[in-house]
Structure formats: structure tokens, C-alpha cells
Nucleic acid binder design. Sequence first.
DNA 1: TATGATTTGACAGCGACTACCAATTAGTAG
DNA 2: CTACTAATTGGTAGTCGCTGTCAAATCATA
Lengths: 202, 202
Amino acid sequence: MSSLADNALPPLGLRERKKAKTLAAIQAAALKLFRKQGYDATTIEQIAAAAEVSPSTFFRYFPTKEDVVLLDLTDPLVIEAFRAQPPELSAIQALRNAVRSVFDQLPDDEFEVIRQREELILANPELQARMLGEIAGMVRLVADVAAERTGRRADEFELRVAAGALMGVAFGLMLTELDASPRDLIALFDAGLEQLETGIKL
Amino acid sequence: MSSLADNALPPLGLRERKKAKTLAAIQAAALKLFRKQGYDATTIEQIAAAAEVSPSTFFRYFPTKEDVVLLDLTDPLVIEAFRAQPPELSAIQALRNAVRSVFDQLPDDEFEVIRQREELILANPELQARMLGEIAGMVRLVADVAAERTGRRADEFELRVAAGALMGVAFGLMLTELDASPRDLIALFDAGLEQLETGIKL
DNA sequence: TATGATTTGACAGCGACTACCAATTAGTAG
DNA sequence: CTACTAATTGGTAGTCGCTGTCAAATCATA
């Protein structure tokens, strides 16, 4: 997660740089151990030792063991990009563009880390549950931005159904198309959106 | 959760009856303490003491503290009813009928327990996350049954899009209709399914 | 260099949970 | 009814994730 350090606030001094470095080290150590021996079998002590910090320091950087895996920086980028889309686009078009622009710009190594995190999440029920909570939060945010764009209230029923469906499809595809490239995912998302627009016929 | 005892296998002896009674007592004690002092502030020891069992017995009945709240007997009924719908109905219609039929037959006191469980779930992030996991599992089952009904494979793209959308809608409603009764939630879910059928226009 | 601010390490303790063994209860056969 | 077996329960030790506290270490500044 070297990108994490790069994407943090501009380093202001040794202290800040050291913090970013420590956070990245902890997370890298954790992800490595999880892959090697499994999430449940990996203890906080092991992670802390591998990252050369104490367990209490671990908890200063990550509130819970789960958060090492769950930390995700792309979602806020998607929301930001969604907000920045030209106002004349429909909300669905705008969301398409936002997802596309974020994933098009992801370096391969970052995408690889995302993939690995997703594999971990799929393999562990507690992580899945947490991830679903994140997804639900995303639904809310997308509904808010879509409301801004369409001049509706964010709590309108139709809007919330739509936002839920859109994000459900997005995450559903991400979590089932584990071998897809970013480009493929975007294409699949597009096809899914199209289907949502025309209606689910089952 | 007296319905739990009633809905268990027919009591075959003192042993079975005692088990059902203990399980119900643990769950009732837990729900009562959670309401009185909050989920996090209630310990397993307190629950066990209130139910007059030992903590190790608690864990024989419920795998985790969360499961006391999460245990839900309506989902299997919905799946069963979904499977039993006439084959000429579309899958979405069949699902709507199934949900309706199960909830229409629930006694009011069961609804009240469902409502209380939902309040607890909405007040506690870990419970929310677990609940979302249950919903996701339910959607997967629904997709499987829908595949059976429509003669498709459950991993077909269209079916996966539908499942994702369904999950997204359920999440969206679950976490935003905070004041809705369980019955209202069912009605809203139904309306959401209808919207999925006709298409998302944003 | 001295001092104050910040970060880290160590440790005690809590609660959820696991696993084991002895005690208790229920069921069955003679 | 008694004796024996099977099933269930209680008690306990221990692990792990996590919280909070305090002392030590490190960084920043005058």
C-alpha cells in the first residue's frame, strides 16, 4: 500500500513521514501474513512483530484487525469523481463516467492490492460483513450525490432504490469477477447498468 | 421468542423440551438486557445469569453474542415459499408473493420481536454488518432459486446483475427506513422490486 | 542545549470465545 | 425399580482482540 503513503497529506516533517511509513508497513505486513497463513490464524502480535511495532501501536493505526483489510481509498475517489461530472449528464451516465475515470487511472499494483483484499474478504465472513457495511454507506453517498444532481431529496424512495441497485450491481460484479481487469470490470458494470435501465426481466 | 420453541421439531421428550425452553430463555434474557442497558454494555455473563445457565451453556446455544439478535426464522420460510410459487410467474413476481405470504401470516407478537431486533441492529454497527451478511446470503439463495425457475445457471451475468441490484435495494431500505415497521419495510421492498422490473431511470 | 509536544512500548485488565473435564440429568434395558 | 449409558451442563483455564494507563523515547522549537 505504498500509494497510501503517497496519497496522505503532503509530508510535513519526519514525524508525518514516519507515520505514513509505519501505517504502510503494518498494512503490508498484515496482508502478507494473511495471505501466507490465513486471516484467522494471524494474530495482532504477529503483525506488529513483522512490522516492528508494538501491538498497542498497531491499534493506534488501525482501530481493529479487520480495518487492515477494509481500508479502501478508491470509494471516496469515485464519489468525488461522481460529484465532478458535468451537470447535463444523467445520474447513471455520471456514475458510469466516475467509475471509469477512477479505475482507468489505477496503477496495476494498486489494482492488484485491491484484488488481494477482495480475495481475503471473500474468504472471511466477518470481513464480508464489514465490507457489506461499507457498501451500504456507499449507497447512501451515491444517493446523496444523485439527489444533488437531479434536484430531488436524497430520501426519496425511488432515488434510494436506484442508488441501491446501482451500487449492488457494482460491488456484486467486483466480488464475483475476481479475474477481470479494470477495463473488463468497467465494461461489465456498463452492461449491468444498461440492464438496470431497461428493467430486470426474470 | 416463544414461537421458536413452538416451531422447533415436535418435542420428543423432556430433553428436547428443555433445550427449546433454555434457548428461548437465553434469547429473551438477552433481548431484555440489550433493551435495558444496551448491547455493548451487556455481557455474556449477565445474559447467562439472567437465563440461569452458565456462560459455556450460552455458547452451546448461540455461537456468538451477535447471533442472539441475528437469529431469524422467517428467511427459510421465504425461500420455501419462493420455491413453491406457481412456475408461470416471473421470478420477481414469485419472490414478491413469497415475501408477502410469509409476512402476512406472522402473528403480531412475532412482528414485535422482529421490530425490536431491528432496532437493536440499527443501533449497533457490528449487528448491522452481520445483518447485511445475512441479507447477502439470502439474496444468493434467491438467485439460486430464480435460476431454477428460469432454467438458467446461477452464475449467468443477467442473474448476477439482478442479484446485485436486489441486494443493493435491500441494503438501501434496511439502513434508511429507520422508522418503518417490519410490515412497512416489506411493502417498500415490494415497491423496490417493482421498480427494478420496470427499470431504473435517473 | 533544554524543554515541551508527540509518539511509542509495555503492561494490566476486560469481554468474547474455545476447549476440556467433571458433575448432573435424562433415557433405556433388564 | 436399579444400573448403566448417553446427553447435557457447569466450571475453569486459556487465547485473542481490544482498551486504557503510564513511563520511556523521539521529534520540534526556542
